[in-house]
């Protein structure tokens, strides 16, 4: 299958999940009514359910999954490590800490942008630390361990904030960030993170080709013509913008960034730059599919998306870690 074929198939899959998310659900709405509402016909109630409740939630899941999938592929390329991923390396936890700080202190100095901005800053701090250490040539294993430490540290600070939470309302908000969910997301929520995602995509497109040369190591990449500082800054910025904005909307959802690139890699000849788009598309499709299944599952209490994704993703992560003898094999 060609690269374009892979991307087209994944795009079609994501579109299908989006349509299914619009027409399927627990409310008293027949399939025909839902389809009608989806194309703009039918009564007002049906249109509200489909367009203002189901689709924003599905779009949020799609965007979050795509952002995390792309971040995983970008970080793996930069750090030359198939286990790198925003969740594993503590980038998501740091972004979540940023979001929690905004909520805990009731910060609103940037209006509705405050939470996403602080989440992106948290992600940027963590990615910067990781990249600095990677440049100092620490081993792949050391890097993962640093990420585990970073993740625990940000998690502990987040727990501290929850302990000190001034009111119950903020507490429930914070639990949401830490468990990960896209329930009740509106189009407004998406509008406020969209600029960060757009900026992240632009940076990713500009700097991803450098990942190809980075496969040979930083010094050889420089000898091939890579501007190392620019590539590193661009990839870090892209991963931080994408992850930070994703966490701002959904809280922490782990392992997407490792599972999606791992599945896609053989279909793009293991090329670290070609990996980024299909990882985003697969990540988006997987998360929106997982959320649809959660929504339809006959459970008394709805499972958190982040919890379910981790239950599937964590064992796959362990499997990949146990099987990777060297790097990238």
């Amino acid at each position: 299958m060609t690269r374009l074929g892979v991307n087209a198939a994944l795009l079609a899959g994501g579109g299908l999940v989006l349509i299914l998310s619009g027409v399927l659900g627990s409310s008293e709405l027949s399939l025909a009514q839902a389809f009608g509402a989806l194309v703009g016909a039918g009564d007002e109630t049906a249109r509200i359910i489909v367009w203002e409740i189901r689709l924003p939630r599905a779009l949020a899941a799609l965007g979050v999954g795509a952002a995390l999938g792309a971040s995983g592929a970008l970080m793996q390329g930069l750090l030359r490590n198939p286990l790198a991923e925003p969740g594993v390396l503590g980038v998501s936890a740091s972004a979540s800490l940023g979001a929690i700080i905004a909520l805990y202190f009731g910060l609103g100095f940037l209006g509705a942008f405050t939470v996403p901005v602080l989440a992106v800053l948290g992600a940027l701090a963590a990615t910067g630390v990781l990249s600095f250490l990677a440049a100092a040539r620490i081993s792949a294993v050391q890097l993962i361990l640093v990420g585990v430490g970073l993740s625990s540290f940000a998690g502990a600070l987040g727990a501290l904030a929850i302990n000190l939470a001034p009111n119950r309302f903020a507490l429930s908000d914070m639990v949401t960030w830490m468990l990960g969910s896209v329930t009740n997301r509106s189009l407004d929520d998406l509008v406020f993170v969209a600029p960060f995602w757009v900026a992240g995509v632009v940076l990713a497109v500009l700097t991803a080709p450098g990942l190809r040369a980075l496969a040979l190591g930083e010094e050889t990449a420089q000898s091939l013509g890579v501007n190392l500082g620019r590539t590193r800054t661009g990839v870090i910025g892209a991963a931080a913008l994408l992850t930070g904005a994703a966490v701002a909307i959904s809280g922490v959802i782990g392992f997407v960034g490792i599972v999606a690139p791992h599945i896609v890699r053989p279909f793009v000849r293991h090329d670290p730059a070609d990996l980024v788009w299909p990882s985003a598309l697969l990540g988006g499709g997987l998360i929106s599919l997982a959320d649809l299944i959660l929504r339809l599952a006959p459970l008394d209490q709805e499972l958190r998306l982040g919890v379910m994704v981790s239950m599937i993703g964590a064992p796959i992560f362990i499997l990949i870690a146990a099987r990777s003898r060297g790097m990238g094999q």
Binding site: R80, N81, L214, A215, L216, G217, T220, R265, R269, H270, D271, P272, M327, G328, Q329
Partner: peptide
């Protein structure tokens, strides 16, 4: 050093 991170 001819290490290549990915099996391209």
């Amino acid at each position: 050093d001819r290490t290549v991170a990915w099996s391209v």
